[in-house]
């Protein structure tokens, strides 16, 4: 499972895209251009990118409230994402969903979710459909450490295990569920330890090492595709910013945040790519400029897009 140069550069670019996207959203939020709430994944980019890098295009994911990164890594388009955040008709959900509900069904993204844990049974059902229709697809199910304490987590993983469904459960453990520390909410040291309860493989991964994430998820995806059933992978990571827009970080220390910033997944990978001669610093800088430009273009597109029409407000409740 060695990575091609293209794949490595793709992973780097996607992480940059997510980082810049999130920081731009933060700015737009503070400028009152984005309404409602949103949850940013700055610091967690390697988890989304490394995991999704292990998929084929036809495969599917379910995402979470912290879902911009998953969407982008699964091929989400910047203009339609910004348009959604600005509540525009050209957005992924025609401005009806906003940050917590972006779905990109054509690309196999079955949606972010406002209900913590809500995507876990949905992903399981997607894998059930794949098994029944023998379409060869695998589903990645993203959820947080907090979500793992919802009853539906247990119900869904057990259902997948007894049916040997083609699914990989990916817990993005960023050490907190909102303000509550992981160790105060879960009796186990690792969510992956719970795999034992379902007799499925469980693995803890350094979630800030994009290649390590890729390797672990690839192994689990291959296993799922061979019909051998689900796995549970836990990416240990950290969110740099507050839980959502209204968070003063009272529940953690500046030192802890600083310490994790030192483990920046992007900086780390950049160094690795340069050291291994995959790309030069100049090439990577150029890539970053391109990403920044694409993001500015996407914001322009979103700003110039039309608002939804009030006359259409009843559209789309029923098929």
């Amino acid at each position: 499972m060695s990575l091609t140069r293209d794949k490595k550069l793709w992973m780097y670019r996607k992480m940059l895209e997510i980082r810049h996207f999130e920081l731009e959203v933060d700015r737009l939020f503070k400028a009152n251009m984005i309404w409602g709430t949103c949850h940013l994944s700055v610091g967690e980019e390697a988890s989304a990118v490394g995991s999704i890098a292990a998929l084929e295009e036809k495969d599917m994911i379910t995402s979470t409230h912290r879902g911009h990164g998953h969407c982008l890594a699964k091929g989400g388009e910047l203009p339609r994402m910004f348009a959604e955040l600005l509540g525009k008709e050209t957005g992924y959900c025609r401005g009806r969903g906003g940050s917590m509900h972006i779905a990109d069904l054509e690309k196999g993204n079955l949606g972010a979710n406002g209900i913590v844990g809500g995507g876990i049974p949905i992903a399981t059902g997607a894998a059930l459909a794949s098994k029944m229709r023998k379409d060869g697809k695998v589903t990645l199910c993203f959820f947080g450490d907090g979500a793992a304490n919802q009853g539906c987590f247990h119900e869904a993983v057990n259902l997948a295990a007894v049916n040997k469904l083609p699914i990989v459960y990916i817990c993005e453990n960023n050490l907190y569920g909102m303000s509550v520390p992981f160790r105060k909410a879960s009796s186990v040291e690792n969510i992956a330890d719970r795999a034992t309860a379902y007799s499925i493989p469980g693995k803890v991964v350094d979630g800030n090492d994009v290649e390590a994430v890729y390797q672990a998820v690839k192994e689990a995806v291959d296993r799922a595709r061979r019909g051998e059933g689900p796995s549970l992978i836990e990416n240990k990571t950290y969110r740099w910013l507050g839980h959502s827009k209204s968070d003063a970080n009272v529940y953690r220390t500046k030192e802890e945040i600083e310490e994790w910033k030192q483990k920046c997944p992007i900086k780390r990978y950049r160094q690795k790519l340069i050291n291994e001669g995959v790309a030069s610093a100049e090439e990577l800088d150029r890539m970053e400029k391109e990403v920044e430009q694409a993001i500015q273009d996407a914001i322009e597109y979103a700003k110039n897009s039309p608002e939804p029409r009030v006359e259409d407000i009843m559209d789309g409740v029923y098929a």
Partner: peptide
């Protein structure tokens, strides 16, 4: 209205 609450502020107001 008999709809899930929409995100867009103007639609939301009309809901």
């Amino acid at each position: 209205l008999d709809i899930p609450i929409p995100y867009n502020p103007n639609l939301e107001k009309h809901a």
